[in-house]
Design a protein around this nucleic acid. Sequence first.
DNA 1: CTCTAAACGAGACGGTACGTCCAGTCTTCGG
DNA 2: CCGAAGACTGGACGTACCGTCTCGTTTAGAG
Lengths: 222, 222, 222, 222
Amino acid sequence: MRIQVSNSAPPAPTPSPRSSAPAYAEGERRSRRRGATLDDALLRAAWEELSAVGYAKLTMEGVAVRAGTSKAVLYRRWPNRAHLALAAYRHHVVPVADQIPDTGDLREDVMAVLRHMRRNSGEMSPETLHGLLAELRTMPPDLMELLPSVMMTILRRAAERGEVDIEKVTPRIAALPGDLQRHQVLVTGRPGSDDFLAEIVDEIFLPLVTPSPLRSQTTAGG
Amino acid sequence: MRIQVSNSAPPAPTPSPRSSAPAYAEGERRSRRRGATLDDALLRAAWEELSAVGYAKLTMEGVAVRAGTSKAVLYRRWPNRAHLALAAYRHHVVPVADQIPDTGDLREDVMAVLRHMRRNSGEMSPETLHGLLAELRTMPPDLMELLPSVMMTILRRAAERGEVDIEKVTPRIAALPGDLQRHQVLVTGRPGSDDFLAEIVDEIFLPLVTPSPLRSQTTAGG
Amino acid sequence: MRIQVSNSAPPAPTPSPRSSAPAYAEGERRSRRRGATLDDALLRAAWEELSAVGYAKLTMEGVAVRAGTSKAVLYRRWPNRAHLALAAYRHHVVPVADQIPDTGDLREDVMAVLRHMRRNSGEMSPETLHGLLAELRTMPPDLMELLPSVMMTILRRAAERGEVDIEKVTPRIAALPGDLQRHQVLVTGRPGSDDFLAEIVDEIFLPLVTPSPLRSQTTAGG
Amino acid sequence: MRIQVSNSAPPAPTPSPRSSAPAYAEGERRSRRRGATLDDALLRAAWEELSAVGYAKLTMEGVAVRAGTSKAVLYRRWPNRAHLALAAYRHHVVPVADQIPDTGDLREDVMAVLRHMRRNSGEMSPETLHGLLAELRTMPPDLMELLPSVMMTILRRAAERGEVDIEKVTPRIAALPGDLQRHQVLVTGRPGSDDFLAEIVDEIFLPLVTPSPLRSQTTAGG
DNA sequence: CTCTAAACGAGACGGTACGTCCAGTCTTCGG
DNA sequence: CCGAAGACTGGACGTACCGTCTCGTTTAGAG
């Protein structure tokens, strides 16, 4: 599959951000790269190209030129630009969010996770995200980031502190904040504001997982 | 420079290379269409083409051939295939969900709305949806269907029946079921099952909007 | 923006819509042509197309199809169909008239040259010639064939035999037979008959270049 | 047939010499033209358009806009732009050269005729001429201007003055100066200089038609 | 003076070719 | 054998203009 902008607009004299960018200095005649070195250079070039021109205008040709290699080298590794872009993204973002926050306060933990997620998803522009989804047909699992597991850890800790009624927490509820944030990005094309995150957490998530204060009273009184 | 013969010769009654869809019966030599008639034929053809080959393979040429017209006629109306596809979708789906359900039961109403929404969004394949989003960069408002207004009507009625604590209902909460369903479609590429809808409603939505039973008990008992 | 599926599938071995000219036998799956081989095939195809449909209906697309290649390959070599047609002509006609006739008789030599020129210019239909001139704005020198140099050689030999007064021969006079023939082709759209050629030679050319018989008598008598 | 320049060059933002040129002042709402009035306006507009943009870029659309009418009105009168352009030319040039010069000197008469012809053929650019020939396939007789008849008149008068041996004059010889001038225009795209005309007359034409001086001497002496 | 038939003007329609761009494949050569 | 370079086949793009057609308006000219 392939996405490209309509050339309705006068196509601009193509100052070609890449044409003038030899991958190595003139006359250097760098020796031929292979294996991991080459892979790394390719992914780095792909990421730069993606950042420079956007997914719609990303072409294998452009990446090849920027990397100082040929299209064949790319096709030998990735079947099309969607997979290339995905690989470039994975190669670029900070590993994953295993740095689970632990501030001692549930709200703060959840907000921290959402902000981290927002930062990562901000790396990949919504345009890129839509393009990838259009070509891949399904979201690659590792883009779902902030898998429930992270949330479950946070929630378990909060439950130990009495902030959460762990029985109320289903997988879907644990995934809820992440899902809503992702939905926002997909639909509006922009990550949510801090207020948006707060709304999710305060209006929806926390009410669903915090213990019902009156129930405990009643229970206690029963 | 360019020289070419005049198309004086009768242009042959369009033997329609696309065998499956002759625009009109052989020899009929339908008179030239205009205005609304033509608009309708174009959108119908676009929708058929979209259903037949999918968004990725949708081409202006293909639609033009199927409609028995030329690309120029399409470009005169829509600037690119994204807008064409969107218009075709709008032209095809049952108007909108103004048929607000009113079963007397909140859960049933919400489920009905979600099912209707699922039916409509099922009309547009996820592939198409992603493609559109990739090219439009932002969700056209009328694809957000099931705008909060519909939900608010349902919720207001439920509140009158005492099923809902209207004070708990914020716009975001009203939009929640629709957003989660849309998220599901966008991320998995498939609309949710009935169980999925039930989960949304029973685990998340209803708990957020129903009056706290114990509080009333307590209040009543106080 | 634009999304389209990858042409990964084997693109079907070109069933060649132009029935008359399969570029290669069925199922042969000829290996990809390059360089001079391809150049030659392109020019040959262009010439065939030109002969088949005429210049007015000559299209880059048609040539590409006949050559079993794509328009891009043509445009990489020639900027438009005029240059392509010209190149095809040059590639097709027997080199040039370096085979200068030498029959020992001036009239016969000139007639031979004119006939050769007629044969060559007959290769390029007047329609094509006009089309080329319309697009090129000026006659390419090598289409002027029968450049004065050929005529000068013939005339010099004739002068040695006493058939020509070389002092009377200006470049314009040497070019005269060729120019008149070309004029005839350009204006009437058909090459001249044998009678026409004879008229040019006997009425106009020979009287201008043969020595005045009486002058020599007088001179001899002086 | 149709000639049009390749749009290789950036097509210029089309300041459209005609778009801003309503055929009549704003708000005037000129009454609808018919018959000869309209014919004249159409031909005038066609000639202006031809002068403004050249034959290659001449379009029926452009002429219609300039004339403040529609294409249908043009097509009702002329089957294609070649005939339109030809009609516009005929409508524009001073009638024809019936003003046969009579200076009392053969050389001067012939030069006068050639200059007149050059002026007229200068009105129609070679580009236009080639375009017309390409589409008409044969030269319209009235473009051959300075048909032999004019020359024959001049030559007959000269013969009466003893400047010409009328027996030497064949139709082809009478047509010779005109043919060579036309050839020059067709081949080089530019009308000949005064020197060129003089060359034709002095080197070729006059020697062919003037009585042989020595023959008369000899005859006189015999 | 009214009525009618024809032509006008405006612009959309169905169609063809343009010249460009990029996909994905293949060939060639050098290391 | 693989990397680098780049040409190849294929196909859609969006534009331009063709010649035709439909529609509503205007204008002669006949009765």
